[in-house]
Design a binder for these strands. Sequence first.
DNA 1: GCCAACGTTGGC
DNA 2: GCCAACGTTGGC
Length: 161
Amino acid sequence: MAPRARAYWLMKTEPDVFSIDDLEQRGREPWDGVRNYQARNFMRQMNEGDYVLVYHSNAAPSGVAGLGKIVAPARPDPTQFDPKSDYYDPRSSPEEPRWSLVEVGFVERFVEVVPLAVLKADPTLEKMVVVQRGSRLSVQPVTLGEFKHVLGLARAKTRAR
DNA sequence: GCCAACGTTGGC
DNA sequence: GCCAACGTTGGC
């Protein structure tokens, strides 16, 4: 078996709820609560070792806050079965789970968030899903080129200080 | 807090 | 299967 190529992703989180700092403190986190089919389908394609740009949404500024890594592949998200959870889905069942989660491990917290405005102003990233108008997808694929370029932007800030 | 853009639901 | 109404996301 040829090793599967590593893939790259962007996952959004609201830092008021769960931030890159929270991920750093915990080390790894089950990424529960995703309730969008497209996002779920991307999570089901993820493999251990894939890298994740951790994106802060509804933040000041919104942008890429750090780097994570997939440490466990998709499995049923238990919150869908829990009537007390905000993410409870009465139409899902353990026999036929509708929603999945992956586990994300902490890799790196950027010195500064790379703001969405910077991504949008960068011609190299014009195809990136997160800069598209009205993009709401909370789990997105990222190309290797985009991934490297965003890391470069984050590191440029580090070197400049 | 506003609101544009989007995804989902459900009547027909 | 269409599409209006509704709820949500997320930038600003």
